[in-house]
Amino acid sequence: MNQLQQHIRKQIETTGPISVADYMMQCLCHPKYGYYMGRDPFGREGDFITAPEISQTFGELLGLWAAITWQQMGSPSPFHLVELGPGRGTLMKDALRATKAVPGFQDAAHIHLVEISPVLKDVQQEALKSEQIHWHDSFTNVPDGPAIFIANEFFDALPIRQFEKGEKGWAERFIDLDPDTDGLRFVLRKDEAARALMPEGLKDKPEGGLFEVSPMGQAIAHGLGARITQQGGAVLALDYGYTEPGFGETLQALKNHAYAPVLKNCGEADLTAHVDFTTLARSFIEAGAKTWGPMNQGDFLERLGITQRFQALLPHANDEQRPDLIAAHKRLCSPDEMGTLFKVICATHPDHPAPAAFE
């Protein structure tokens, strides 16, 4: 039993079972024992690999997308280019390299990274040491003004609540001590208030289903939508998820590139859940923003020219690099890899024209 699990056990013994959202928040963000607070989880030596680490073309294309969006906004100067959950800084580094040739873009851009991990902040500082970067622990601290927000695999790590429909109606899943072991277990607490968090089409479904919702994700999307509606700008979010709300558990733990038990090794594995893009879009819209998509990541990248970019790189690649380029393109775009599982959604100021790839 590690120190975080001991801490959670003491909390449950003192105040009773905790929600899944509370459990996720502690496992990921506890200031002393949280998963993201003391490690670099990315890459082959970590627990998972994200799109920017697969190929530099991913960040380059997102940078060019941001430059086109900036031009559609009327090329404001200054403006804020903000990344939420920037990992190692790889995406931003590639984006800035690709946009050097866009007249006025980098002169106008104030770069902001929203990061809570001290370890990752150090990695980002090294990766972007030639740039002037501003760090924040919340997007709400980004100064006023038009802004373009990029969120790649950000919303999936936000805490969720889980609700299960049994014989007596809806109940919320909580986490309690397992009386038969030293570990933890899921329990149910009756909660009629849960119905208010659910889409109308699911409230009267038959028993046996489990529904997930991320109030924090909705609140952040609403806040971002209000920001760009009032001050101008756009939000581009890429994540794995689904386009229609439905039953099913997606909460998962990842450790050493493999699935791990959710209720074990607290703080030592990444915890994520699939993003509900319909609810995400509704949060943007309720704040006054206009939404575009969601669409599959493979389609989005193809519309931005990823195949042409790889075709341009292949003639200059050696025998060792060529298979890696082909594999990277397949992983990012193929329907049986990230191409379909990952979705892309954009929110803009209501008067913004169709963003690149969403025409």
Rank of each mutant, 00 (worst) to 15 (best):
G85Y: 08
Q321E: 15
A95L: 11
M73L: 09
S138C: 07
Q218T: 03
Q308H: 08
P353K: 14
E131H: 13
F42E: 08
F105H: 01
P315E: 13
G169H: 11
G298A: 10
T307L: 11
D299I: 13
L81W: 02
L254M: 11
A95V: 13
N2R: 10
E302V: 10
W65G: 03
A357I: 08
F211H: 08
W170M: 04
L113A: 02
R44L: 10
A98L: 00
W70E: 00
H352Y: 15
A194F: 05
I228N: 05
A258P: 00
V187Y: 07
F358S: 04
M338S: 00
W292L: 03
A289L: 11
K205H: 11
Y36A: 02
Q297Y: 03
Y33H: 15
A127M: 09
D122G: 08
P206G: 11
Y259H: 10
F163E: 02
H136I: 07
T307A: 10
D156A: 06
K205D: 09
H30Q: 04
D156H: 04
I220L: 15
F186G: 05
I12Q: 01
A221V: 02
S117F: 02
R331C: 05
L325P: 11
E302I: 12
S77W: 03
P353H: 13
V123C: 09
L197K: 10
R9T: 14
D94M: 06
A98T: 03
D319T: 14
L120F: 02
H110R: 15
S55I: 08
L238F: 03
K203M: 05
A221R: 00
P353D: 13
R303D: 07
I116P: 00
A289Q: 09
L4P: 02
H222K: 14
C29Q: 12
L251P: 06
A287G: 01
G339I: 06
G225E: 02
Q26S: 13
I150W: 02
A109R: 04
T69K: 02
D324V: 11
G233F: 07
G104M: 11
M216L: 15
A317H: 03
H349S: 15
L263C: 08
E115Y: 03
A287E: 00
D94F: 04
G34P: 07
F155S: 06
Q5K: 14
T291D: 03
P261W: 03
S130I: 13
Q56C: 06
L64R: 03
Q231D: 05
N256C: 12
L62M: 11
F300T: 01
H80M: 05
N2E: 07
D319W: 08
A287V: 02
D94P: 05
A196W: 05
L84N: 01
